[in-house]
Simulated assay, not measured.
Amino acid sequence: MLELAILGFLAESPLPGHELRRRVSHLTGYTRPVSDGSLYPAINRLAKAGLLERRADPRAGAARYVLSLTEAGRADMLERLRKPAEHEITDHTRFYTVLSFLSLLPDLAEQHAVLRRRLAFLEEPASFFYDGERPMRAEEVTDPYRRGMLLAARATSRAERTWLREVLGEQPPA
């Protein structure tokens, strides 16, 4: 997801590395901190693959660079948005990274296909806790903290499913 965030932010505008780091950190940093040790190797991999380029920033001195997306980088980013991996649909933080840049995908039908995958995932019965193979509902859990987790997750999931159906122009199942 780090690479998609890098490509997505650079699709919006060229950025110096420190500003790119700040934006990526604001997007995912509260749950998955972004260190220089992960950001700059990712930038180097993307540059080596021809997906972004570095130019010296004459305003900031010789040691500073501005990063920009190449046409190959734009194509790669769009493909990542069209076909996110399953864990990018099911993991909340990863999905929000996809969602952050989904509007860059020019085809509304392709955007909606991604949203339908997320909606299908959210409509599957799930829980953090199980009774054997059966997912437990919040009302069945006696531990108040676990019940709180389930109630919060239920409310979040319900709100997201409502929003997804609204965007997709679909009615909830009867």
Rank of each mutant, 00 (worst) to 15 (best):
H87T: 08
M1V: 01
T142F: 05
D76C: 10
V34D: 06
E19D: 12
Y145I: 13
R55K: 14
R137M: 09
V98A: 00
R80H: 07
T31H: 12
T28F: 04
R22I: 13
E133C: 05
A174K: 09
H112Y: 03
L20I: 08
I43A: 06
M1L: 04
R59S: 11
H112K: 13
L150K: 02
P33L: 05
R55H: 10
R80D: 06
M149D: 08
L15F: 07
T97I: 15
L15M: 15
F95K: 10
S38I: 15
P173T: 02
P14F: 12
R21Q: 13
P84Q: 11
Y130F: 15
H18Y: 12
F95L: 12
D107V: 12
D76Y: 06
D91W: 03
E86V: 11
L67S: 04
H18T: 10
R161F: 02
A11Q: 02
T70F: 06
T90W: 04
L150I: 08
V66Q: 07
V167N: 00
A42R: 08
M149G: 03
R45A: 13
L20R: 04
E123T: 06
V34C: 09
L20V: 11
A126I: 05
S157C: 10
H26L: 15
A109D: 10
E3D: 15
P58M: 07
Y40D: 00
Y40F: 15
G50Y: 08
D76L: 05
A47R: 14
A60Q: 10
A120E: 13
T97C: 14
Q111S: 06
R54H: 07
L10Y: 04
F129H: 11
E79G: 04
S68A: 15
A75E: 13
R23N: 09
E86W: 08
R137D: 11
D91M: 07
R23G: 08
T156Q: 12
L69P: 05
A63H: 10
N44I: 04
P84D: 11
A126Y: 09
A174F: 04
A113I: 05
L10R: 06
D76V: 06
D143H: 00
L151V: 14
L81I: 07
R80V: 07
R147S: 00
H112G: 01
A47T: 08
P106N: 03
E19W: 10
